Every structure is written in structure tokens, then in C-alpha cells.
Amino acid sequence: MAAANERKSRGLSLSLPRRDPVPQPLPLPPPSADNNNNNNNNSLLHRFRLPLIPAQGRIVSLDDLDLDRKSLLGAGSGGKVYKVVHRWTGRIYALKIIQEKHELDVRRQIMREMEILLRAKSPHLVECYGVFDRGGEVSFVLEFMDGGTLADVLKFHRTISERYLAEVTKQVLLGLLYLHKHKIVHRDIKPSNLLINRRQEVKIGDFGVSTVLAHTLAQCNSFVGTCAYMSPERFDPDGNGGEYGYAADIWSLGLTLLECAIGRFPCLQPGERPDWPTLMCAICLGDPPSPPPDASPEFRNFISCCLQKDAGRRPSAEMLLTHPFVKKSELQPCSVSTLLQGLVV
């Protein structure tokens, strides 16, 4: 109560309320009782064509056979990401490859990611230029972010100061605002899914576990994403009506920013294993983590707003864009590209 009164007295509280052989379209999952969007997916795939780009005075197709792999940018359970160069134009892209044969549920997830990537157009989201399927190996040609991820920056600098975090926060919130207005919950906001380039842009990437909500009031009820950044209502769906929604992304953003500020994952002590039971106890039963004592009142309040255990009390992305901590990025502008000095991707 005292903390709440202190925030109120300082005026920091918020009101709550993507030649030979020719690439083939992705195979659709067989019909099932719960695959209600099958017709929509068919329509999408029949409309899909290889993107065209200008090259040496003519228009050529962006084909993955014309992409030379230069380096491995990252790897995970979902596949690998390469830095590639288009032979005809010299343009650099990121090539995300989802390998191996896929189970029905995985194919549905790939289809979901394809649909989201093709229709999501925002300067605050990593752009998808093409999607290819060759022998069951699915590839996404993506915008190359030459500064890497926020996780790369954090590893290089150990911590990130508030003046930079304010600008990062503003751009990520604009990306979340776009997603949420289009009924998309990202479900995997974390440092490695926030990308930076040397044009001072921060963009949200990797929609592999995103979902398009059926309608404005629909909620998500599946366990996907990185559990370390999951909100309490995702760990304990029974205690929250079995549902979660856009507010889950706000919690994940709060944890991400706090991790950048203190240089370690905030819900666990150094050396503590990040297994499911430990994380569940820390996030569902423990108090939300707080910024260090020397953090600014604005940052402390912003993190407090994001890390409300009651999802209904978390402000929306639109509301958080008016928060004093975010407004600092306008009053004290800085170039996030400065964080990339000395960093090699």
C-alpha cells in the first residue's frame, strides 16, 4: 500500500482497465474436427507466389536456390537461422530453416507462422519476404537485422542502461500494439526475439508460437513459448479461468527489460536451475521481481505495471506507450545503434 501511495504521489501510476525443382506450397494438415480454418489456409496458399525483386535492370524471383549461406546466426529446437546473400542482387537476408519431417501439430504451427508473417506489415516487426517448402524443409526469407538480438547486446554489455531501454521499450510496444490490434498474441517475447539494426530500429521477430485470436474476446489456452518468460496465468491456467491473452506479452516484456537492467534472469537467483517446477514456484508463488534500488522511479513503476500477477491489472501496450518511462525516450533521445559498437554479428 505504501509503495502504491508513493507511485501515486509521484504521478507515475496508470489507469488499468515468407527454379528446379519448383518450390511447392506447404502441405495442409488433413481435415480434422478442430481445424476450422482449413478453407482459409487453402485460400492463402493458392494466393501465395514467389516475391519479385529488381535485379540488374530486370525483375527476378526471390528463390531460395539463389541464396548463398554466409554464416549461422542462431539455432534452436525449431531449426536454424543463416545469414544469406542473394546472388543476383547482393542483398543480405536472414534464412530461417525449419528442418525434419513434421507431425500434424508442428505443421499447423508452421502454417500459423507462415500466415502471420505474410500478413504482418509493420516497421516494428521483422519482415518476411518469402516462404519455401522443399522436400519437407520449410524456409522463411526474412529481413536481416545487422545488430543481432537484444540477447547479443546484453551478452556483450552485461547490462543495458535505462536511456537505451526506454527507446527499446517504445519500439517494442509499438510492435505489440500492432500485433494486439490485429488479434495476435506473440507468446514468446524475450531478448533473443527482439532484434536491432544500425538504423536505430528495434523489431519483434519469430512468430513461431504466435496465435491469431478468433475474435476480440477470444483467449489462448495452450502451453507454448519459452517458459522462463511465461506469465503466471500461463503457468497456472486453472487458477485463471484456463485462459490468457494479450497481457501475457506485457508480462514477458517486463521480465525482458528487467533482465537487461540487472544482467541476469530476474526470477531466479544466480546458479539456480531454470527448470519448470522452479520457474513455476518462483513466478506463481513468489513476489514479482523488482528493479534494483538505484533504478529510476519511472522504470520501477513501469516494471511494476508489467509484472502485475493479476493479468487484468496489467496495462495494455497502448496505455504503456503513455507511461513516463517511455516518454523519457522522447525527452532524452538516444541512438540504440550505439549499443552495437564493437558488436559483430
Rank of each mutant, 00 (worst) to 15 (best):
A282L: 02
P274S: 04
W276H: 09
E233F: 06
Y244P: 11
M280N: 09
G239Q: 04
D275Y: 01
G245K: 04
V224H: 00
D275Q: 03
D238N: 12
R264W: 03
P237H: 12
E233N: 00
N221F: 03
P266K: 10
D275I: 13
S252Y: 03
Y246C: 11
G242A: 01
G286N: 04
A228V: 06
I250H: 01
S231Q: 02
L279G: 10
L253H: 10
R273C: 10
R273D: 12
V224K: 00
E243C: 14
F235T: 09
A282Y: 00
G254E: 14
T278Q: 01
T226G: 00
P274T: 05
P232K: 06
T256L: 13
W276K: 10
F265L: 10
D275W: 03
P270K: 13
T256R: 13
L279H: 09
G245E: 06
A248P: 07
A261F: 13
N221L: 09
Q219R: 14
A247D: 12
D275V: 11
R234I: 15
N221P: 08
L253Q: 06
Y246F: 14
A247H: 09
P232R: 03
R273K: 15
R234D: 00
P277G: 05
A248D: 11
S222I: 07
G245I: 05
A261Y: 15
M230F: 09
N240K: 13
C284I: 08
R264E: 05
E259Q: 15
D275T: 13
Q219C: 06
P270S: 14
E243D: 02
G245P: 01
Q219P: 01
F223I: 06
P237C: 12
I283E: 06
Y244N: 03
L257K: 07
G271A: 10
Q219Y: 10
M230G: 04
E233S: 02
I250W: 03
G271N: 06
L285E: 15
A248K: 04
W251F: 11
A228G: 11
T226I: 03
G263R: 05
S252Q: 07
C260W: 06
N240H: 15
I283G: 00
E243A: 11
Y229N: 01
R264Y: 08
G241H: 02
M230I: 07
W276Q: 10
E233Y: 00
D238Q: 14
Q219E: 08
P277S: 05
G241K: 04
A248F: 02
I283A: 02
G245T: 03
M280L: 05
F265S: 10
P237G: 06
Y229A: 02
N221K: 13
Y244A: 10
P232A: 04
C220A: 15
L255M: 13
C281Q: 11
L258H: 08
R234Y: 01
C267T: 12
N221Q: 15
L255W: 05
N240Q: 09
F235K: 07
A282P: 02
I283Y: 00
Q269N: 13
